[in-house]
């Protein structure tokens, strides 16, 4: 452990890179998810098909392959992305494809009656979406968003494979130069776990805020720290 101590600042620099990539990619993923969800719900068949194609493409194959593809193949088409840009693009589009299903399901979860009321009241369509549908759909999306954020943090480790000096990449460098891989990787796992806890906690704060914005009085019901009473009774295990 002592041997690793001098490298801690170097690792913390990696934490910064990891968080930057995570946040940039999720910032890309959320609008992508909404756009794809709208495309899938569009009245036009071509739009639905295009949205479905993008979603299936990114969900169907491995993110590692997509990352390598962006890194090695895209330049052949004359598109030279920096490793960071390629990493953010692939992570964002990939996670956005997954999250679009959450967005779609949340928007769908609003009852037909609410939609019909906006029509019967002649509300302008943008107002109906912004002020009636979205405030009811957004709180439904927040807990899955928390999962997506933690997933993105874990996902971001993959960018070390295309030479980005994030936390995982730097762990590899230190492990090689010190020859004490176990300590370094153990430490890095703990750092990732701590980051995941922090992100999950931050999303719970966000959840409370969104609930307030949406006019829902109930505070966070789900999340990492809440310990719900299990519905499996103690006697199920013979006690």
């Amino acid at each position: 452990m002592g041997a690793v101590a001098p490298y801690v600042p170097f690792l913390l620099g990696g934490v910064q890179v990891t968080l930057q990539i995570t946040f940039a990619a999720i910032a890309l993923a959320v609008p992508v998810a909404f756009i794809l969800a709208f495309a899938r719900m569009s009245p036009f068949r071509a739009m639905r098909w295009a949205g479905g194609f993008v979603i299936e493409t990114f969900r169907g194959s491995s993110a590692v392959v997509q990352l390598f593809w962006a890194f090695y193949v895209l330049p052949l088409f004359g598109i030279n992305l920096s490793p960071v840009a390629a990493g953010i693009l692939v992570l964002g589009l990939n996670e956005g494809s997954y999250f679009s299903e959450v967005v779609r399901a949340s928007l769908r979860s609003i009852s037909a009656g609410q939609r019909e009321a906006t029509v019967a009241l002649h509300l302008p369509r943008f107002f109906a979406f912004r002020s009636v549908i979205l405030p009811q759909a957004l709180p439904v999306m927040i807990p899955p968003f928390g999962n997506a954020l933690v997933l993105m943090l874990k996902f971001s480790a993959l960018v070390s494979l295309v030479t980005i000096q994030d936390l995982s990449f730097r762990a590899g460098l230190i492990a090689t130069s010190l020859g004490t891989s176990g300590t370094v990787y153990g430490l890095v796992l703990c750092i990732y776990f701590a980051l995941a806890l922090m992100l999950a906690g931050a999303v719970m704060v966000l959840e409370r805020r969104v609930n307030r914005w949406a006019g829902r009085d109930d505070t966070a019901r789900s999340g990492f720290f809440t310990r719900r009473q299990s519905s499996v009774p103690p006697w199920a295990f013979g006690r």
């Binding site: 995982s168 990732y192 776990f193 995941a196």
Partner: peptide
């Protein structure tokens, strides 16, 4: 569940 598979 909270750590990357790559590092694991």
């Amino acid at each position: 569940r909270g750590t990357p598979f790559l590092v694991q």
